[in-house]
């Protein structure tokens, strides 16, 4: 009993202290207030609401009824979702490692050059990142055009038949993947370059004395020292890759059939073409968990390697 009253007394004291501190710091709360209001309204509430909605039968015309796990059942039983998940996974597994590795190589090359050349190449590789994906997707759709597109001219030089890049089931996803591989990972190149310049020269000097060649130095010093950047960039581009949408809606609309259907495009279609809000919410919750699990796994695997 004595102990309890002591605990209560202390709790009361610390509560009072907290209250005092809060009053003393009212200015700090005022500074935070506008952002917190917006954050609560447009991020916190919608996130919680999305989870609630995913258990409801919510169509634009109907009242919201509790639906239990019906939406989730429908998600996992649908052919479209299965295809979207497979396509998005293939797309990510191919493009993310390729883009991160090429960014590392490009940054390593650029790093050896003079200042002017560094600025030039950095700009050349970052410019496509600055331009909207809408623009990039529109011009690639033009380059992939069956009759007059640039690619089919190139194909023609090699004496091959024209390819209906985006229009047939067996090449559409590859076309989207090739496009993503050929757009430089500008953020990655810039971050790698910044991290490289902070690696201590003494490491390289020591390696030179030990008789290491340029490649050995790169592979044994540069690459391991860049591990934090590699983790960050892999996570960043995997998360981005699972959200692929703009190319899909502007270039293939998910077709032909479900050949290029992706998760976010499916969510968009379910929610804002069919207005099946409950189902779309369930799909987006599943997307969230997929991204969450992959992020955690990647972080652990890559961290252990380093």
């Amino acid at each position: 009993m004595l102990e309890l009253s002591l605990v209560l007394k202390n709790a009361g004291k610390s509560l009072k202290k907290t209250g005092k501190q809060m009053r003393k710091n009212y200015a700090a709360y005022l500074f935070l207030l506008p952002k917190l209001i917006l954050f609560t309204l447009f991020i916190a509430i919608p996130v919680v609401w999305a989870f609630v909605l995913s258990f409801q039968e919510y169509r634009i015309t109907e009242a919201n009824l509790f639906a239990g796990l019906d939406n989730y059942k429908q998600v996992f039983e649908s052919e479209a979702f299965r295809k979207a998940l497979i396509n998005t996974t293939i797309y990510t597994v191919v493009t993310v490692p390729f883009n991160v590795i090429t960014a590392l190589i490009a940054a390593s090359f650029i790093h050896t050059l003079g200042r002017f050349a560094q600025n030039f190449f950095r700009a050349a590789f970052y410019l496509p990142t600055v331009t909207s994906m809408v623009i990039i997707a529109m011009v690639w759709r033009w380059m992939y055009n069956y009759e007059f597109g640039l690619f089919n001219h190139v194909v023609g030089w090699f004496g091959m038949e024209k390819i209906n890049w985006l229009g047939q089931t067996d090449s559409a996803l590859s076309a989207i993947i090739i496009m993503q591989m050929l757009i430089p990972f500008g953020v990655g190149i810039i971050l790698y370059m910044a991290s490289m310049s902070s690696i201590s020269d003494s490491l390289y000097e020591a390696a030179t004395i030990d008789g290491a060649n340029a490649f050995q130095k790169w592979f044994k010093i540069t690459v391991p020292m860049l591990t934090p950047s590699t983790i960050y960039l892999t996570l960043l581009s995997t998360i981005g890759s699972f959200q692929v949408f703009t190319q899909i809606i502007l270039m293939t609309g998910g077709g032909p059939g479900y050949a290029t259907e992706t998760l976010v495009h499916l969510i968009y279609k379910t929610g804002f073409r069919d207005f099946e809000f409950g189902l779309a919410a369930a799909q987006s919750v599943v997307l969230f968990f997929i991204i969450f699990v992959i992020s955690v796994l990647q972080y652990r695997v890559l961290n252990r390697k380093g």
């Binding site: 954050f39 996130v47 929610g271 987006s284 992020s295």
Partner: peptide
Amino acid sequence: FIFWLIISTMMIPSQVTLVPMFIM
């Protein structure tokens, strides 16, 4: 707590909030 709250929502893909935001 506030800082942690803000950081943790940076991990949530923005598509999750599409439907609730639309209704709102």
